[in-house]
Amino acid sequence: MKEFVVYTLARVGLFVASYAVIAGVYMLVRGTDHVPILWPFLAAAVISAVASYYLLQGPRERFAARVDARARAATARFEEARSREDQD
C-alpha cells in the first residue's frame, strides 16, 4: 500500500508542478491574470506523463514488484485451496 501512495502522490505532485509552471509562463507571456484551464491542463498532463516515465521509474518498479508479489501469493493460496478441494 505504501508503494501505491508514494507513486500516486509523486504523479500528482509532478502534474501540479507542471501545471503551475505552464500557467506561470502563460501569465508572464500574456501579461494577464486570466489563465484558460483546458490548454495548460492538457499540456501539463502530457508533460507530467512523459516526465513521470523517466523520473518515477524507481517508485513505479517498486509498486509493480509489490503488485506482482501479492498476485503470486493470491495465486498460490488459490492453487493450494483447489488442490485441497480435489483431495476431498
Rank of each mutant, 00 (worst) to 15 (best):
A23G: 08
W39P: 05
L42R: 08
T32I: 04
S52M: 02
R30H: 14
G31W: 00
R30M: 13
Y53E: 07
H34Y: 11
G24H: 06
H34S: 14
G31R: 07
P36C: 04
L38A: 11
V16T: 11
A17R: 01
G31P: 10
I22E: 10
V50A: 15
A45H: 00
W39F: 14
A45L: 15
Y19S: 04
A20K: 03
G24F: 08
V29D: 09
P40I: 07
L42T: 14
L28W: 10
G24Q: 07
P40M: 11
Y53K: 13
H34N: 13
T32P: 05
L28H: 08
F41M: 06
I47V: 15
A17V: 14
G31D: 13
V50I: 15
A23Y: 00
A43V: 14
V50C: 11
R30I: 06
P36V: 02
A23M: 04
V16M: 01
A44H: 06
T32D: 01
R30P: 03
V35W: 09
Y19D: 09
A20Q: 08
V29N: 05
V29W: 12
M27L: 12
A51F: 01
T32K: 07
W39N: 11
Y19R: 01
P40E: 14
P36G: 05
R30G: 12
V16E: 00
V21M: 12
Y26G: 09
A17H: 03
A45Y: 05
S18K: 02
T32V: 01
V16Y: 00
S52K: 01
A51Q: 01
V16A: 10
P36N: 03
M27F: 08
Y19W: 08
A51V: 00
D33R: 04
L38H: 04
S18Q: 08
R30A: 13
P36E: 12
P40Y: 01
I22D: 09
F41T: 15
A45E: 11
V46T: 15
V16P: 00
A51D: 12
H34I: 14
S52T: 03
F41C: 07
V16W: 03
A17W: 03
P40L: 08
H34W: 07
A49I: 02
I47S: 10
S48F: 05
V35R: 10
A51K: 01
V21D: 15
F41N: 11
D33I: 03
P40T: 13
A20P: 02
L28Y: 10
P36W: 04
M27S: 15
L42I: 15
I22H: 04
A51R: 02
V35T: 12
L42Q: 15
A43M: 12
F41Q: 14
L42K: 12
L38M: 09
D33F: 08
A44Y: 00
V29R: 03
A45K: 06
Y19Q: 04
I22P: 09
V16H: 05
A17Y: 01
A45G: 13
S52H: 09
D33H: 09
A43I: 15
A23D: 11
A43D: 10
A20T: 06
L28K: 11
F41I: 10
V21H: 14
A51P: 04
T32N: 03
T32G: 06
S48L: 14
A23K: 02
A51L: 10
V50G: 00
I37S: 11
A51Y: 02
G31I: 12
P40G: 14
V16R: 05
G24W: 00
Y53R: 13
